[in-house]
Design a protein around this nucleic acid. Sequence first.
DNA 1: ATGGCGCTGACAGGAAGCTGACAGTCCAAG
DNA 2: CTTGGACTGTCAGCTTCCTGTCAGCGCCAT
Lengths: 221, 221
Amino acid sequence: MRILIVEDDPRIAADISAALKAASFVTDIAADGEDAWFRGDTEPYDLIVLDLGLPKIDGLTVLKKWRAAGRHLPVLVLTARGLWAERVEGIDAGADDYLVKPFQMEELVARVRALIRRSVGIGSAVIETGLIRVDTRQMHVSTNGVHVPLTPLEYRLVSFLVHNKGRVVPASELLEHLYGDEDAREANALEAAIMRVRKKLGTETIETRRGYGYFVADSAP
Amino acid sequence: MRILIVEDDPRIAADISAALKAASFVTDIAADGEDAWFRGDTEPYDLIVLDLGLPKIDGLTVLKKWRAAGRHLPVLVLTARGLWAERVEGIDAGADDYLVKPFQMEELVARVRALIRRSVGIGSAVIETGLIRVDTRQMHVSTNGVHVPLTPLEYRLVSFLVHNKGRVVPASELLEHLYGDEDAREANALEAAIMRVRKKLGTETIETRRGYGYFVADSAP
DNA sequence: ATGGCGCTGACAGGAAGCTGACAGTCCAAG
DNA sequence: CTTGGACTGTCAGCTTCCTGTCAGCGCCAT
């Protein structure tokens, strides 16, 4: 899962980024409205954390532009304490959730997880398919009730596929969502990762649809 | 389905081409207006993605020439951000849809699919005939509710025939739309493909009209 | 009946994907 | 600062599957 953090204070941005990375997300940072607008239009993020006070272009304006262009990805808005006007405007502009500054990182991470789940139509923090079970809060994956330790990359891969269970996910899409824009990888890196996951979770968990991508079956069709 | 990409930046052209190929389209690329004009006049494309800023002949001029010559295939125009004048001119010149640069590939692919459906008079992303059902977004084909896995070529074939259901499609036309101009094939390759599809979906799904071509029955006559 | 169009099974070249080995990088412990 | 281990990208070789070609057969229309 790849997240764009839009925040002009580099310290806060770094903090948020660290917290989200620890929660197995991939993050990019945009420090001003112009950059944010461009990236949000170009890259396929799963969520955007948007601070409103920004140089060049205001956060709300950027949000409105995205919505006008048809971007429907979840946006979590960070707003200064007590500015109710901002909040109302945010709702109108198409924000999906808010967090009032200052906030606890834990809280932010929890909301991000919930928003992403909601955006793919999953209610619970524990996602199950016929073969595996992913606890998104603990970042635990288990087969037959047995916990299987995964490396960060492996977990990101499994998590993304499970969030998109029942759908064939093209390799290109996986690459885009598993890696930030600074570390583009070749397709083979993905194949290697898939193989490593299969070794741990079993060959059947991830199916290959030759020519299309990878597929994780949904338990309840 | 065969698509002409008119774009002078080779990187962007390659990106678009890759995205469309992943969505089971066949693509050719034209890097300047002159080449675009010639190909658009010569080859039977199902859609054209047209960038406006081009060497030799301007994109709008090319579009106008095509329209003047009576070509009515769908054209998706790529326009630079904020150039409203271009947009208005594009409408006048006969563009069917726009996309403002920069954009997400997903969005482009979605619009291309929609335009192609519209051009054959189909509203939904799921096309059904009496015997089969094609989900163009997931690239799924099913008979009697059962998903039938198809190889890329097989899917392209079925997709094209289903988009043209109720009409006899000559073999020559199939060849032109299933393959790019770089990889021309003999007629027998098509026959082999037809046979493979029939093995998977049933002999009745594709009828042979000897001397004329192939035919997929429409469900609602 | 017969010529030709279309069908079919076999085969092979090549592409897509898999796998094991290896090495560079990063981080934590000493 | 050094060392060791975990993680992961890259490479090379291999396997599997896709698909075009060929050769031969069957069936339809005249």
